[in-house]
């Protein structure tokens, strides 16, 4: 067996006294305030065993705040939050034992090498050294950092650091991975490598929750996702479901002229204007395009598949956040 295919997380979701459909995370009207500022505004969601669940949203949407509550490092201000069926605010230690966490900000120990970083971290979980050592070698292999085993953190590239943080999150065979922007600041190659690793973990049936700004990332990896904005969940669903539900399977773009608008209005299809462009959401792009050419002078017409990005922009608006 290829060592990369070894099981890196526990897969038997036979949590004591729970059946397979008991949510790994269950949030009801979860709320977080900082003073009078509401960062997370009564959100409800459930994540089930084996799911990859994404949180999307612009800067300041409340994603990290939500992750921190799941990780039991930030107390909630209201509502209920259960992880592994237990109240997150009470059973912090037993929950944290079973979590793997990738924080938004890389916080490796710069004084240590890759190997030492994982070893020191394994001690926090009380993993015996012998067991930890074997596991660390395995994990360094998994994230393709064997060659950097004895290299100090400051000599690593951003992508390597991120991969090491992912390896670190797997040190305790977690039942649930919580990743806050796992691919933040990485180039396309490095991002693809992380995706590949997450796909392996996903294929092994692991439960993963992650946040991202990359819509492509969410579209590729998530079984289900929510889009958050200003502390609220705007929508929840599968990537395909959200696309077909909010923008249709395809999008036809044409130049924004009064003539074009008039003829779209005539067709009675839904559209939106973005600057000098008009976007028509449809399940039938050929017919729309044909119609445009037949009835008006649309200039350049461009048809493409609808994406999560279209859903995102439609729901959160195009103005810069923060």
């Amino acid at each position: 067996m290829n060592r990369n295919e070894k099981v890196l997380m526990r897969r038997d979701h036979t949590y004591t006294g729970m059946d397979a459909r008991t949510p790994v995370i269950d949030a009801q009207d979860l709320r977080k305030t900082f003073g009078s500022f509401v960062a997370v505004n009564d959100i409800s969601f459930s994540v089930f065993p084996g799911e990859v669940f994404g949180f999307l949203g612009p800067n300041g949407a409340g994603k990290t705040t939500t992750m921190k509550m799941i990780q039991c490092v930030s107390p909630k201000s209201g509502g209920s939050l259960k992880v592994f069926g237990r109240e997150a605010g009470i059973y912090q230690r037993s929950i944290k034992k079973r979590l793997g966490v990738v924080p938004q900000e890389t916080n490796l120990d710069t004084e240590f090498t890759c190997f030492e970083n994982l070893l020191v971290y394994s001690r926090y979980f009380g993993i015996p050294k012998q067991e930890a050592t074997g596991r660390i070698e395995e994990l360094l292999g998994f994230v393709q950092l064997e060659e950097k085993r004895d290299v100090l953190i400051e000599r690593l590239s951003g992508g390597m650091k991120r991969r090491l943080v992912l390896a670190r999150a797997l040190i305790n065979n977690p039942d649930l991975l919580v990743l806050d922007e796992p691919t933040i600041g990485l180039d396309p190659q490095a991002r693809h490598l992380i995706w590949e690793k997450l796909k392996v973990l996903q294929a092994q049936g692991n439960t993963i929750v992650f946040t991202t700004h990359y819509l492509e990332e969410a579209e590729r990896l998530c079984n289900r996702l929510v889009i958050m904005d200003e502390g609220k969940i705007l929508v929840e669903g599968s990537p395909a479901g959200l696309i077909s539900g909010h923008v249709g399977s395809d999008i036809v773009e044409a130049e924004h002229t009064p003539e074009v608008i008039a003829c779209i209005e005539n067709m009675g299809v839904s559209y939106e204007v973005f600057g000098d462009m008009v976007q028509i959401f449809t399940d039938n792009p050929r017919e729309v395009a044909k119609n445009l050419f037949d009835t008006c002078n649309p200039g350049h017409v461009f048809a493409r598949r609808g994406s999560l990005e279209d859903v995102f922009l439609k729901l959160t608006g195009r103005a810069l956040k923060d």
Binding site: Q71, V73, R93, P103, E105, N107, D109, Y124
Partner: peptide, 12 residues
Amino acid sequence: QKTFDAMIATPL
């Protein structure tokens, strides 16, 4: 260095 943050993400 956010070392404490890394630590409290474990059972500590």
